Amino acid sequence: MLEISSHGAIREIRLARPPVNALYPPLLAPLRDAVRAAPEDGMQGLVIAGGPNAFSAGLDVPYLLTLDRAALLDAWRVFFETAQAIAESPIPVVAALAGHSPAGGCVLALCCDYRVMARGPFRIGLNEVQVGLAVPEGIQHLLRRVVGAYRAERLMVAGAMLESEEALAVGLVDELTDVDHVATRARAWLEDLLARPLRPMLETRRLARADLVGALTDPQRLDLDRFVDNWYRDDTQAVLHALVARLKK
């Protein structure tokens, strides 16, 4: 479910679970491990790509609804481990968003250094509220740090999904390009960054991203047990099952 290729010192990891790259442990664990392996293999930059219609549609809700509590906790834990691996990667990471990026897809993108999105009717955002879930504090921090506190509040409380042009205007993504050139532009940004003196660039990056790493490594800010408790609330289950019913039509 991953396609991995190298372009000089830049590695590209492409999500390949049709039709929408829905996230679940058999995809997330290899992604987590591939992100960690890239710098160990001597890579200096990393692109995480997905498409053509969805970078990732987020967590695989139909799958998650089949799990008991212990397995559900494990599944969410693997997701957050993957986000952490991206956030704390010692090399810069670019998200190549050749399609929609709701919920978990948006979270992974926010963990990256830079986001290149396809221009067009594609949407991105933390829409958890619309599917009956509250956004944990650690994830809220990811959005606040890129669009500002007030705008992040308005977007998350509404569960808003922004089309690409609006996402660029508010700073949620950094660049738009043709859908066929998203990964190419992601590599180009990395090549330009890597042309700078490497050690001071990486050290400055590490310091600048310390808050990002902290938001994802502090158990109290993710509060996974409470998140899973809320998953089993009657109102949340009703919304999730209604979502699955719509997906089956």
Rank of each mutant, 00 (worst) to 15 (best):
I10N: 04
I139G: 13
L240M: 09
R221W: 14
G159I: 06
P25I: 04
A38I: 03
H7C: 00
A70Q: 14
F55T: 05
L243P: 02
A167W: 01
V47D: 02
Y232G: 07
R77K: 12
A22H: 05
A167I: 12
A183N: 01
G125A: 00
T177W: 01
A208Y: 11
V173Q: 01
V182K: 01
R246D: 10
N53M: 05
S5T: 15
Q130Y: 10
M1I: 00
D60N: 11
P102C: 08
P197L: 10
G50K: 05
A109F: 07
V135C: 15
S164D: 09
V135T: 14
R233D: 08
A188E: 12
Q220T: 15
E203T: 13
L193D: 01
N127Y: 13
V78N: 14
A158S: 15
T236D: 07
R32H: 09
R187P: 03
A29R: 15
W231S: 10
A160G: 05
D178G: 10
A167M: 02
L133F: 14
G51M: 03
Q140S: 10
A152C: 07
L194K: 11
E12K: 06
L126H: 14
R221Q: 09
V93K: 13
L240C: 00
E88H: 08
S56V: 04
D229H: 08
E191M: 06
D174G: 13
M201P: 02
I139A: 15
A49Y: 07
G42H: 03
P92T: 02
L212H: 03
P19K: 03
L31G: 10
V228E: 11
V146A: 11
E12L: 08
R69E: 07
A34D: 13
K249P: 01
I10Q: 07
H141T: 12
V147R: 11
V173K: 05
L23F: 01
R119E: 03
P19F: 02
R119K: 09
H241E: 00
L216H: 15
S101I: 01
R221V: 09
L65Y: 05
A34F: 10
G148D: 06
Q130G: 14
M161I: 00
A75R: 05
A210M: 11
V129A: 10
A167K: 07
H7I: 01
G132D: 00
R69C: 08
Q140F: 02
L59K: 04
T217L: 12
R151I: 12
D178C: 11
Q140W: 12
G50C: 04
A245V: 03
T184F: 12
A96N: 07
L194A: 06
M156I: 15
S101L: 03
G132A: 10
G120W: 09
W76E: 05
A167Q: 02
A242S: 09
A169N: 04
D192A: 11
Y63Q: 11
P18E: 01
R119L: 02
L31S: 09
I124G: 03
E163W: 10
E163N: 07
R144S: 08
L190I: 04
R144C: 00
V78R: 15
A98R: 06
R32K: 13
R32L: 10
R145G: 14
W76L: 10
D211R: 15
A134Q: 14
Q130L: 12
A208M: 06
I4H: 10
T236Y: 09
W231I: 09
D218A: 12
H241L: 06
